[in-house]
Amino acid sequence: MSYDLTGPLDFDALGSVRPGSNILISGPAMAGRSDLAFSMLAGGSREGEGAIVMTTGDPADDVLADYRNRVENLDESRVAVVDCRGEGGRDSEHTPDGAYVHHVSSPGDLTGIGIGITRGIETLTDSGATAGRFALDSLSTMLTYTDRKTAFQFCHVLSSRFDSAGYVGLFTIDTEAHDEQTVQVIKQAFDGMVEISSDGGSRQARVLGLDGQPTDWQEF
């Protein structure tokens, strides 16, 4: 099997993505990185795949409310949220609609995040999801809690885990929030990248790394 990540973007390179691929969604502030990541996640949920969201900014309730709007008749037993905003320490719960929510003390608590993701994958598998997509929004916030070495190694280890789980991972980064060396280092933890640029009213994207040569820019 492979993952179809098209929908918001119509690139061949996104049409059949190998399980275990991890993709960086990069671009400047307000260019719609999170929106793109969640759209790509929602495409899977519509097909009955599992979805795991790791949020560093919006609370789990807001993430779930937004996600319900994206997916009609969402089966929430196939949704997990790892909420890293550090409210409530490490604990977990199921929402009334069946989504699994795991709280972690901070975006720098890698052990807690690892436990949340592990439990999330377990829960989705128990609900019958044989494939799944993961979105981390955002690496930039995480990088304010950890140094780039730790963040890079975290991405690398997570990639390996998703590779064995057969998941696909989407990670957002604000390119304007970091120096160039940091972005160049973090990029190397990924199989491919969706680069967004925003110019006045129009947004463009291109894909690098998944299918050889960089694609042309496409408006979306």
Partner: peptide, 21 residues
């Protein structure tokens, strides 16, 4: 990717992240 079977087990995954922490 060959070591630890590519971090296949939950224990190896958590322990590796704890090491980064």
């Amino acid at each position: 990717s060959e070591t630890l079977g590519g971090i296949e087990s939950d224990e190896d995954f958590i322990a590796t992240l704890r090491g980064l922490d």
